[in-house]
Simulated assay, not measured.
Amino acid sequence: MEAHKRMGKISVVLVIAILSTGVMMVLGLYEYLVNMGAFDPSDASARTLAGGLIGGTFLQWTIFAALYILGLLNVRNPTHHKRFMLASAIQMMPESLSRITHVLSLPGYGMLIIMFLVYLSIMVYDWRTDRRLHWSTLTALALFILLAISIYTVFRSQVWGDWVVNVLSGI
């Protein structure tokens, strides 16, 4: 238990590093693509793609941070602490799943299906062990569904893409 507590404290530094360097990398990639000429901010479809990438990535990280913080706030309740920490790890799966779906030639939404199956396994575990779904599991699932819906609606809109590129052009 002491090792778990020590690793938990160290993980705070890791989470901060993941989030801060992640933001720097995405913004740096955007700037690199513009400067290299691979991305033309005057092209409407390019702005939509950029908005989708940046919106989806930042919402994913925001949900990751929220789930991680909820895990910390529930550290004295092992049931919820465990589920929130597991869910925060699931939120970071797209980084590796995008590669797997590409290699296996799966459609882009394949990554969301795989993530949903992992959430489904937690729900089955809840049901089999406690005969109910815990609020922490349902909260994590709801945030995942918010991400999935946002990726295929808001973040694919021209208005969103135009706004993101406009904001990034001002940085």
Rank of each mutant, 00 (worst) to 15 (best):
Pro41Met: 09
Leu72Arg: 12
Gly52Pro: 01
Lys82Ala: 15
Ser42Val: 11
Thr57Val: 01
Met36Trp: 08
Gly56Tyr: 01
Met92Leu: 15
Ile54Trp: 05
Met92Ala: 15
Ile100Asp: 03
Thr48His: 05
His102Trp: 11
Pro41Thr: 09
Leu147Lys: 08
Tyr125Gly: 07
Ile171Leu: 15
Leu120Gly: 13
Thr57Asp: 03
Ile18Phe: 13
Ala65Arg: 04
Tyr152Lys: 04
Trp61Cys: 08
Asp40Arg: 06
Met36Asn: 09
Ala142Lys: 05
Leu133Thr: 07
Leu70Ile: 03
Thr57Lys: 06
Glu2His: 09
Pro78Ser: 13
Leu133Gln: 07
Met1Gly: 14
Thr137Gln: 07
Leu49Tyr: 11
Ser169His: 11
Thr79Pro: 00
Lys9Arg: 15
Leu73Asn: 12
Tyr152Thr: 04
Val164His: 02
Ile145Asp: 03
Tyr30Ile: 01
Ser169Gln: 14
His102Glu: 14
Met7Trp: 13
Ser136Asn: 11
Ile16Met: 11
Glu31His: 12
Ile171Ala: 10
Ile149Glu: 04
Leu29His: 14
Ala140His: 05
Val118Ile: 15
Val15Arg: 02
Tyr152Pro: 04
Leu72Met: 14
Pro107Lys: 13
Val124Arg: 05
Thr21Trp: 07
Gly28Met: 06
Asn35Lys: 15
Tyr68Trp: 14
Ile63Thr: 08
Met115Asp: 07
Val154Ile: 15
Asp40Gln: 08
Leu168Asn: 01
Ile149Trp: 04
Thr139Asn: 05
Arg76Met: 10
Leu143Pro: 00
Val124His: 00
Val103Pro: 00
Glu31Asn: 12
Ala89Tyr: 11
Ile113Trp: 03
Ser96Lys: 09
Ile149Gly: 01
Asp162His: 02
Gln60Trp: 04
Asp126Glu: 06
Gln158Gly: 10
Arg132Ala: 15
Val165Thr: 10
Arg6Tyr: 07
Leu112Trp: 01
Ile69Cys: 06
Ile69Ala: 12
Leu141Ser: 10
Ile69Phe: 14
Leu86Gln: 06
Gly55Leu: 01
Trp127Glu: 10
Ser105Tyr: 09
Ile10Asn: 12
Ala38Asp: 11
Lys9Thr: 10
Leu104Ile: 11
Gly52Thr: 00
Val159Trp: 11
Ser20Tyr: 07
Ile149Thr: 03
Leu143Asn: 06
Arg47Gly: 07
Ile149Pro: 00
Met36Gln: 08
Tyr68Ala: 07
Ala142Met: 11
Tyr30Leu: 05
Arg131Glu: 11
Leu59Ala: 02
Ser45Cys: 00
Pro107Gly: 07
Met93Ile: 11
Ser136Lys: 09
Leu120Val: 10
Glu95Pro: 00
Asp40Trp: 01
Asp162Glu: 10
Ile16Glu: 04
Phe39Ala: 12
Gly28Phe: 04
Ala140Ile: 02
Val159Asp: 07
Leu33Gln: 13
